[in-house]
């Protein structure tokens, strides 16, 4: 009898354990929610660092998660346009629909680069609003953190002060870390790189790297052997220092070109979880710089 009652009371108390259920589209936003909300939010990511966030399926497990979410944190700028609209519809969850406070798109809070000149599917996977891979510049993370903390407070006003404290703490630590990264990365400035996918304009802009070629003939279109040979020929005239790809991408095109040109091929973690060292947002940039510096030796 007593046990039943205690069980019931603990059931009632259940929602107090994590105030918010958060579904992030990519691991970096789940990690950022963790930094800002600690144990007040239970955050899960819809994709892993080894999946291409353009292309996943609205699987039953994701629909079930979206159904229960109070807050959806995604990159936006059409990165998830292949699966998120369907996931939102199937979730039958009004709280996270576009226009509601539970619908947070990080790209709305940063300035996007590479807005395409021509909108056509003949150009491959182009995004009308600009390049969506914003997480590779820590200054973008800082900007999104501010907006996200406010959103958390709006959705869970009871913990507003808590979120504000954590935001201020994160901002301070992040600022210090960024100064460290920028000092370490000074010698990367002006280094010429080849990218497998145009997924790094924000990283390059931050560090002053120069992209001289992209291995995909059009965004999202896999390079053919012929196209790779063409790039290799071009690199003879305009040499580069390294070939960069994200952890989720197939290593074949970069490795092929690396074998042919003798350039080092670097797999960057790209997001939290993309390497053993990239266990959180700080580790992500530590490891990214470590790998770039190693290749630029």
């Amino acid at each position: 009898m007593r046990k039943i009652l205690l069980l019931c009371l603990s059931l009632l108390a259940w929602p107090a354990q994590a105030a918010l259920t958060v579904l992030a589209c990519e691991p970096e936003w789940a990690a950022l929610v963790g930094e800002l909300a600690g144990d007040r939010a239970a955050a899960a990511s819809a994709t892993t660092a080894f999946q291409d966030p353009h292309h996943i399926e609205a699987r039953p497990s994701l629909i079930a998660r979206a159904r229960r979410a109070d807050l959806l944190v995604c990159t936006g700028a059409e990165l998830e346009s292949g699966w998120l609209p369907l996931l939102l519809r199937e979730s039958a969850n009004p709280r996270i629909q576009p226009g509601r406070p539970g619908h947070f798109m990080a790209a709305d809070f940063v300035t996007l680069l590479d807005k395409p000149q021509r909108l056509s599917r003949a150009e491959g996977d182009v995004h009308a609003q600009g390049n969506p891979h914003i997480q590779t510049d820590p200054r973008n993370i800082a900007q999104v953190a501010g907006a996200l903390a406010q959103r958390l407070a709006q959705l869970d006003p009871a913990n507003a002060a808590f979120y504000e404290t954590r935001r201020a703490d994160f901002a301070r630590r992040w600022q210090t870390a960024m100064q460290g990264w920028e000092a370490r990365a000074a010698r990367l400035k002006g280094v010429r790189v080849v990218s497998q996918h145009s997924g790094f304009p924000y990283l390059y802009q931050w560090l002053g790297l120069v992209e001289v070629a992209v291995l995909e003939p059009k965004p999202g279109i896999e390079p053919s052997a012929g196209y790779l040979a063409e790039v290799a020929a071009r690199l003879k005239a305009k040499p580069a220092g390294m070939i960069v790809r994200a952890a989720y991408q197939s290593g074949r095109p970069s490795e092929w070109l690396a074998g042919r040109s003798g350039l080092p091929a670097v797999a960057l973690p790209y997001t939290v979880g993309g390497s053993d060292q990239a266990g959180d947002l700080f580790g992500l940039f530590d490891d990214t710089l470590g790998r770039l510096l190693e290749a630029a030796k």
Binding site: P98, A128, G146, A147, Q150, A153, Q154, A160, E164
Partner: peptide, 24 residues
């Protein structure tokens, strides 16, 4: 604590939220 927190307005956020997210 909520009362304490209230002076922080959601101004910067709302400016953006009305922004370009709609092209979904």
């Amino acid at each position: 604590r909520l009362k304490q927190a209230e002076p922080h307005p959601a101004a910067t956020e709302t400016r953006h939220a009305a922004g370009p997210d709609r092209a979904n």
